[in-house]
């Protein structure tokens, strides 16, 4: 859906983005990660032409974006930044209605859409519709920021470190909500972060950048198990590598389908590191697993966490096949 073909951007004598090529598929959640100055934000801001590319071509659905009017291009995409950038003199409702207003939607439709979005982001419409940004907490402001980006039902959502300024608890709940929204709407997301945990948690695929170059673009599992360079390994970190490794697979991937055991069951989509935590907390080595409809889906053994390809794994195929 989004194609970069040898895209280069220079600021003066400094090359911010150096002949980068990649493709983001329709509906994919792509995370761009790298140290500061690696060019990840520049790549993001070239997708909606906030920064023009010097060389190469950027195509969306096969159309070179240089041939489109920048304003029209941007109205078709959602855009969320770290500092939120809500318009302080407008109410929450008017902020969310920005792009629908620019696109000339009828008033009633805008109103309904605002209600829908506030509910989607767990903000009570009656309470927050007429509030001004300065009356909201940081987390609430970013919820409004996300709602504003989603307002005109964009097929692409661009997010530039949207949760970096939030406290860990608020960040975690917004990450969960964003995942849910992505699953429900199928919007293509390009998400910039410098936080590898966030990248592993959210991304279908992760593109690692350094000094303007694309170092590696792979699934979270591959990033963990087959880092393409020492930099990627450093970004992942060595200390809690094992836990991160567990975090990119789910209970359902490793449960032994034929077995059963009593106890409070775990959902199949629970990440494995949570299952480990649960085992330690309960002092058990076996946990029952249920699928999305609550039907028994097997048992997870402590040893399955250590040996991914141990006997009894029914999910099939090598673990490197990924999570998506």
């Amino acid at each position: 859906m989004i194609d970069f073909e040898r895209v280069t951007k220079r600021f003066g004598s400094w090359t911010a983005v150096d002949a980068v090529s990649f493709t983001v598929a329709e509906g994919e959640f792509r995370v761009l990660i790298g140290p500061s100055g690696s060019g990840k934000s520049t790549v993001l801001r070239m997708i909606n032409r906030l920064i023009p590319a010097d060389e190469g071509a950027i195509r969306i659905d096969g159309v070179d974006i240089a041939s489109l009017k920048p304003e029209e291009l941007r109205r078709r995409m959602g855009y969320v930044i770290q500092s939120v950038g809500l318009f302080p003199h407008w109410t929450v409702e008017r902020n969310i209605a920005t792009v629908p207003g620019l696109l000339g939607w009828p008033r009633a439709r805008i109103r309904d859409r605002v209600t829908e979005l506030l509910e989607l982001l767990n903000l009570d419409p009656r309470r927050y519709r007429g509030a001004y940004p300065h009356q909201l907490s940081g987390g609430q402001q970013q919820r409004v920021g996300v709602a504003r980006a989603l307002a005109a039902e964009p097929r692409i959502l661009l997010m530039d470190e949207p949760f970096s300024a939030l406290d860990p608890i608020t960040r975690a709940s917004l990450q969960t909500e964003l995942s849910a929204i992505h699953r429900r709407t199928g919007t293509t997301v390009v998400f910039v972060t410098h936080d590898m945990d966030e990248a592993l948690r959210l991304g279908d695929s992760i593109a690692v950048m350094d000094h303007g170059r694309l170092i590696q673009c792979a699934t979270p599992l591959d990033i963990l198990t087959r880092p393409a360079s020492p930099l990627v390994r450093d970004l992942v970190g060595r200390e809690e590598w094992g836990l991160k490794r567990l975090a990119v697979e789910t209970v359902g991937d490793r449960a032994r389908r034929q077995e059963s055991v009593t106890g409070e069951p775990l959902a199949a989509e629970t990440p494995l590191h949570r299952a480990l935590s649960e085992m330690v907390a309960r002092g058990t080595e076996r946990l029952p697993v249920v699928d999305g409809d609550g039907r028994p889906a097997g048992v997870l053994h402590l040893s399955d966490l250590v040996r991914p390809t141990s006997a009894g794994t029914v999910s099939g195929g090598p673990a490197a096949s990924g999570t998506a």
């Binding site: 801001r45 909606n48 906030l50 920048p70 304003e71 029209e72 291009l73 941007r74 109205r75 078709r76 855009y79 930044i81 770290q82 500092s83 939120v84 950038g85 809500l86 318009f87 302080p88 003199h89 920005t98 792009v99 620019l102 920021g145 504003r148 980006a149 661009l158």
Partner: peptide, 27 residues
Amino acid sequence: VPAPVLDSARGLGMGPAEMLFRVELPL
């Protein structure tokens, strides 16, 4: 006028005139 406000106004697809009259001048 705060830079993030201008950045998001542009990123949401406001043209120069819309940015001036709806965001910059009111602020």
